[in-house]
Design a protein around this nucleic acid. Structure first.
Lengths: 316, 316
DNA sequence: CCGTGTGATGTAACTAGTTTCATGCAACTA
DNA sequence: TAGTTGCATGAAACTAGTTACATCACACGG
């Protein structure tokens, strides 16, 4: 049960702990000594304690990731991107899911700080900003995802452009009356709706009917309330795609003939279902966020990605 | 840039580090002293180093999770379950994705060991077993997911039962000639196919035509080669559901009339698409795995979950 | 008035490593 | 042969905490 320490290896090999450390980390050691040490380490099953290394280095090699919603495909791809870069840099990933409970976020950030993560990638909202800034001041790069804040790095989508793309596509498909389902008051949602409004106006179309839905089980009612006057439904968050789609099809509406449907974020079944989406490069965004952590730019960097339209016929 | 240490707090409050430690962890301290220490800690922005605590405790509070495939809905739900229990126990989750590259697994397990995780939950295959056993011997509970091995905990599905369920449903739907797409030689896959064979035999149906597909881009060809003689296609892994479904619909086949389709693992769009599945309680499995880590049973425990059929009409 | 008990605090040893500095020893130079 | 150089190694200090033990002041009982 007692762990084998560097001291045990040193004793077994008949050298000092300093020498063992040098062998393990590639210092100046005689070949014969190195061989002895390797043999001892092997035979004792020595596993160096990464925590101790980290405490000496002042921080661990771990990259912290705080995610609002593990079940959303966007965040999933984001994590895949982060993990990819982290693995390439021998950095483990420490993951925390807040399950959309904002009150947990500051605590999660604090926990990450206490674990002395090498850097933090987070979707937390303003509440946690002071905490994140303190970390940044201590030299821990913090990257906001899907939001910007002064003094912190960020990786986000051009949400206004996403809204514009949506409006443009709807106009091209000959839709005239648009209903919007948005998911929160967060800036991403607000900006997408704003882009949509702007784009519709530029295309000479009337402003959209809007409903805001926090919980998935409110979607059906909300969509129902939209339907009396619209010929297309737009969903500004990938999280609600299934619910909105279900609300439409449950009413027997066929796309694109009975109703147009356009949503955010690519997902595996979009092709099979013929659903048009405005996609964000979530995997690439995850990669970029992790790169910011690894590269530690001195000045806060704001990386903005452009959305792309993937037309599949659900709008006509 | 220099971190505030317990020593800085002690100096600022005019006490010893021992007293600060006692204040922070609830030892015997005078109320007036405690107040001073809290004030100092607050004003200096002290953040206790969790790594140092862990090294003294001999291990960290982190739970390690090694996953083969982050994009599979099964693993995603599993992680959600693990995270839920971990969060309830104030344990961060350290995540590593092997991207189905078996050669990375042993290295990942080693890395988790070096980080002195409190416990390990892994889908790694036999290659990493010796490493995992060494960890278990050192007192780190290791839980295998979707596989069993002597001396290690495991959380898995009754895969034979899953195959039986599939066969039973196909028989009930009047299917007579079944094609199977399986995803690997791993025991899960083999057992599901075995259960399917057994169930078909018990129902008096002929043995299935089987193709094994490692890569997603081989699915279309493989499905094509099945189609000359079958009236139902079964997919024994959720990972390939999209590809197999696409291969079928791309040929203009309608379900259930032209072909029956049955696959593994529940997924968000199954309802919308009317696809019948044999589901595993992946979230619950994740929770149970994390509980095994937290509870550290002395004897290796093998938890087996039962699959359930969710019939949605894609088989008739 | 002295011995004892108790609560609050400090000292120092401990965790498992890394790293600096000093030292030993051999080979080479003068 | 003495002095210099340089490699290999060990002792000890350091990382940031925790904790066992020692100490001290003070209150109380005999």
């Amino acid at each position: 049960m007692k762990r084998v320490t560097i001291g045990d290896v040193a004793a077994h090999a008949g050298v000092s702990t300093a020498t063992v450390s040098r062998v393990l980390n590639g210092g100046l050691v005689a070949e014969s000594t190195a061989a002895k040490v390797w043999a001892s380490a092997e035979s004792l099953g020595y596993s160096p304690n990464a925590l101790t290394k980290s405490i000496f280095a002042g921080r661990s090699s771990t990259i912290g990731v705080i995610i609002r919603d593990l079940s959303s495909p966007f965040y999933l791809d984001l994590i895949r991107g982060v993990d990819e870069v982290a693995a390439a840099n021998d950095s483990p990933v420490m993951l925390a899911n807040t399950d959309r409970r904002t009150d947990r976020e500051a605590a999660q950030v604090r926990a990450m700080d206490q674990h002395r993560v090498r850097g933090l990638i987070t979707t937390a909202d303003e509440t946690a900003d002071p905490q994140a800034r303190r970390m940044a001041a201590n030299g821990t790069p913090c990257v906001l995802v899907a939001r910007t804040a002064p003094g912190l790095h960020s990786v986000s989508l051009d949400d206004v452009a996403a809204g514009l793309l949506m409006a443009l596509h709807l106009a091209e498909c000959g839709r005239s009356r648009v209903g919007v389902v948005s998911g929160s008051h967060r800036p991403t949602q607000v900006n997408r709706v704003q882009g949509l409004r702007q784009g519709l106006a530029e295309s000479g179309l009337p402003q959209p009917e809007e409903v805001l839905v926090e919980n998935e089980d409110e979607v059906d009612g909300a969509v129902g309330s939209l339907l009396h006057c619209v010929d297309a439904v737009v969903c500004t968050t990938g999280r609600l795609t299934v619910s909105v789609h279900t609300a439409l099809t449950a009413r027997g509406l066929k796309m694109p003939d009975d109703i147009g449907f356009l949503t955010m974020d690519e997902f595996p079944w979009a092709g099979a279902l013929g659903i048009s989406v405005v996609a964000q490069p979530s995997y690439e965004m995850g990669r970029r966020a992790a790169e910011l952590v690894v590269e530690e730019p001195a000045v806060p960097e704001r990386v903005v990605f452009q959305p792309t339209l993937v037309a599949r016929g659900s709008c006509g």
